Amino acid sequence: MIKCIAIDDEPHALRQLAEYIEAVPYLSLEGSFESAFDACNFLHDNAIDLIFVDINMPDINGIDFVKSLSKNVKIVFITAHSEFAYEGFQLDAADYLLKPISFTDFLKSANKVNERYFQQNSSLPEIQQNRDYLFIKSEYRVIRINFKDIKYIESKREYVKIFLDGSEPITTLMSIKKLEETLPGNMFMRVHRSFIVNLDKITVVERNRIIFDNKVYIPISENYGEKFQEYMEKGFV
């Protein structure tokens, strides 16, 4: 695990940053601080690998704070002002994030720092499976999802979005391939590089697409179409 702290004088930004850190499997949040002074006191007695620090703070700014640190601590600078970026990189910062920060941007930065400096195993298990349900890590929570409640799953590059009956979609950090390998093959089928569908939920197929709720259209790609057609033909009378 990469031991981290977060420093930002804005409470909302600090809470968001802490949640982002806790959502990444190979990062461990050891502390969060609204003041660089408080962070300095913590660092005096605790070894840390990586610091996410805002540059523009009222007591000690992030640049001066980092100048006081030992060289073996990696830094990701955070600021709302892009003009500070150059000075941050002059200090050999590991990365730089511009506010407002999305989780996607944060994750890209964390992955880059991990691969460049730490080589931590970022493929820790995101899924725990049982007979008719699985547990999914979503942000800082672990959520139980029953197979029968899943309608379809959409890939969003680093994420997948799981659409459910009767509740809001759940987003989790994993590949669609890994999820495809985990789901029971007699119940789920991949019909496109970006979509997996629950076969029990299909009621309408039209022009190489599956229609859910008369408003969601799932394309059936050529690469997966033959297997899906074989499934459909088994149901013909």
Rank of each mutant, 00 (worst) to 15 (best):
K215R: 11
D200Q: 14
F195V: 02
K201Q: 13
R207N: 14
F195Y: 15
L199S: 01
T171R: 10
L179W: 06
V205Y: 08
E168H: 13
S175N: 06
H192A: 03
R207I: 06
S194T: 12
R190Y: 10
F212G: 04
V216F: 00
I218W: 04
H192G: 05
K178M: 11
L199A: 00
R190V: 12
D213I: 07
N214T: 09
G166P: 00
S194N: 15
L173R: 11
I170F: 02
F188A: 12
K177L: 06
L199P: 03
M189R: 09
I202F: 08
R209K: 14
T171C: 14
V204A: 01
D213A: 12
F195P: 11
I196A: 07
I176L: 13
D213E: 14
I211R: 01
E180Y: 06
R209I: 03
N198I: 08
V204Q: 13
T171P: 00
S175Y: 01
K215T: 11
E168G: 05
F188N: 03
S175L: 08
R207G: 04
T171M: 15
V191E: 05
I210E: 01
T172R: 08
M189Y: 02
K215W: 00
N214A: 15
R190I: 12
R209N: 13
T182K: 12
D200N: 14
I196L: 13
I170D: 06
E180D: 15
I196M: 11
N198K: 00
K178I: 00
F188Y: 05
K177D: 09
P184K: 08
L173M: 09
S175P: 02
H192T: 03
P169M: 09
M189N: 09
M174A: 05
N186A: 11
V197R: 02
R190S: 10
Y217G: 02
N186C: 01
F212E: 00
G185N: 13
M189S: 13
T182S: 15
D200P: 03
L179P: 01
R207Y: 06
D200T: 10
F195R: 01
V197K: 02
T182H: 11
F188I: 08
K201H: 08
F188H: 07
F188T: 09
M189P: 06
P169L: 10
D213M: 07
I196K: 12
V191R: 05
